[in-house]
Simulated assay, not measured.
Amino acid sequence: MDEQLLNTPGLTDFTEPPAPEGESPYVAGAQPGRVVHVVEPDPDWPSLGAAVLERVRRALGAADVHHVGSTAVPGLPAKPVIDVDLLVGDPGDEAAYVPALEAAGFRLTVREPWWQQHRMLRGSDPAVNLHVFATGSPESARHRLFRDWLREHPEDRDRYAAAKRAAAAAATAAGEHVQQYNARKEAVVRDIYARLFASIPQA
C-alpha cells in the first residue's frame, strides 16, 4: 500500500457532517441519481478511465487526478459510471477549475463545503462522476487505498461485489436513490476498511 496515503491525517475518521440547515449539496436543481443499476465488469473501463483522466489534464494542465471506485477494479461489477478524484489546492476557488472543466463537457452538480470542501461535476460519454477534493483529503486517500486493496484481495473484492448486487436489487425494489444504495452496502465497506487498516504495520 501507498505509505504516503496511509499517513494522511484523519484517514480513519469517517465522520460526515450533515448539510447545514437549509442548505442542499445539489447545484441548480441537480438531484441524486435515481437509477441504481449495477452491471458486470466491463474490460473497457480501465481505458475509459484513462481517457477521462487525460480529458481532465487537457482541460487543466498538470492535474492530480485518479481513477477510483469500482470501475477501477478489474473483475468488480459496478454502476457504469467512471469515478474520478481531482485534487486541488482550494476546492472553494471554483473559478480556478470549474470553467475549464465545463468547457471540457463537465457540469457542476454538487457543492459541499462543509464536508472536506467536496465538489462534484458530472460528465457524459462515458458517464463520469468527477469528485474534487483538497490536496491531502482523507476521503480521496481512502478511495485510492480501497481501490488498491480490492485489486490485491480478491476475497474482499468478491464480498463487495455480492454486497453491491444485493444493495442495488433492494434499492431498486424500494425505489431508492443512489445515496440510499450506498447506505445499504456501507457495513461491508466499513468492514473491508477495518481489515485494510488492521493490516497496516504498527510503528
Rank of each mutant, 00 (worst) to 15 (best):
I82F: 07
A127L: 03
R34C: 00
K164T: 14
G69F: 04
Y181I: 06
A167C: 15
H66V: 10
Q116I: 09
V98D: 07
H118P: 07
L87A: 10
L196H: 06
L5M: 10
T12Q: 14
R107F: 02
Y160V: 12
G75A: 10
R195H: 12
E94P: 01
I192C: 14
P74V: 12
A170G: 11
E54M: 09
D148I: 10
V35P: 03
L11Y: 04
D93G: 08
A78C: 11
R57A: 14
F133Q: 02
L5Q: 09
H66R: 06
V52R: 00
R119A: 13
A203I: 11
S140D: 05
V188C: 14
A30P: 04
W149C: 02
E112R: 03
H118N: 10
V36M: 04
R58D: 15
M1P: 08
A127G: 03
G105A: 03
Q31K: 07
M120P: 02
L76W: 00
A166E: 15
V132M: 02
V128A: 04
P41N: 11
D90A: 14
V189W: 04
V56Q: 04
M120Q: 02
H153G: 09
V128D: 04
D42Y: 03
S137C: 09
A169C: 08
H67V: 13
I82Q: 00
V128I: 14
Q180S: 15
L145F: 05
V188G: 09
A51E: 13
H67P: 09
S47R: 14
A96C: 13
T15V: 13
H67F: 07
N182I: 14
P18M: 10
R55T: 04
A96D: 15
T12W: 00
Y26M: 07
W115E: 07
G175M: 07
Q4H: 12
E23F: 14
L145T: 07
D83V: 06
R151L: 08
V84G: 05
E152F: 02
F197P: 08
E152G: 08
V68T: 14
V81T: 10
V128E: 03
T12R: 13
H143W: 07
D90T: 14
H131F: 03
R142I: 08
E176M: 03
A203Y: 11
A161E: 05
V35H: 01
A141E: 04
G89E: 15
E152P: 00
D85N: 12
A187M: 13
A171W: 00
W114E: 06
A134R: 05
R58W: 10
V35K: 00
T12H: 09
L108T: 05
D2C: 13
I82R: 00
H118W: 06
V38G: 00
Q116M: 11
W45H: 06
E94M: 12
Q4I: 15
A169Y: 01
R55L: 01
P41F: 06
L86P: 05
P99G: 13
D83A: 05
